[in-house]
Nucleic acid binder design. Structure first.
Lengths: 112, 112
DNA sequence: ATCGTTTATCGGCAATATACGATAAATAAA
DNA sequence: TTTATTTATCGTATATTGCCGATAAACGAT
């Protein structure tokens, strides 16, 4: 049976983890959602929808991606969902991204 | 007829730019390529291929994405291509990402 | 000019992502 | 209980991404 190649096979775990942060940020809607969540401190899907040029179901999907990548936590609160930024995960993300950036800048003295 | 919605419509330019960096980093192969380029300072596609579990044409496509997002420059050098990390762009990326991270951490005092 | 080397691009296919409307599920309000 | 509200999920359509093999393009070497 053919080995099903996934995005993650054959790469170091730290590289895969960093790419996961990239995936989370790879769509403007998700970046915008993170900023909105941070500004309001506590938020629900509906209010976010009002500020985005997307349907409610689409926003819900983007929130799911952010949850999958760990940047956001969601709790049910009555008929609403309370989405919060996971500050620990944001810090973890920034640690990984800064580590990557540092190693790129440190060594990237191109001789071309 | 219908307006063709692209990924970028309806979002602030800074948000779109940040999402572009995310897109560049959103695949483990691209993260790995950046690290390899930084380590070797100067590199060609073929040598990178040897270190990645991907076909030469696939690596070339990932390099194209990195070029599109500005993180990498490529110069033709005889039959080879010399790919270099664009250190200025890396710094610009880190500035954007750190700005995002700071604004998320500053305000993300979740009361849920 | 021909041959070997190297990289980019093309064609095609499978998988994933994006988007929307409709609907289900859960709860608050009446 | 019925109704209204809110969010998640389903179904579906389209676009994009990712992957490979094959081939083209460019060049150095012979």
């Amino acid at each position: 049976m053919g080995v099903t190649r996934t995005r993650k096979t054959g790469f170091a775990t730290e590289v895969v983890r960093t790419a996961g942060w990239g995936r989370a940020l790879a769509h403007p809607a998700r970046v915008a959602i993170l900023i909105l969540l941070a500004e309001r401190r506590t938020c629900v899907c509906g209010e976010i929808v009002d500020d985005l040029p997307l349907a409610q179901s689409t926003v819900s999907q983007h929130l799911r991606v952010l949850r999958e990548e760990g940047l956001v936590r969601g709790e049910v609160d009555g008929t609403r969902s309370c989405y919060c930024i996971d500050a620990d995960r944001v810090r973890a993300m920034m640690t990984d991204l800064n580590r990557l950036g540092a190693s790129l800048e440190r060594k990237a003295a191109c001789g071309c």
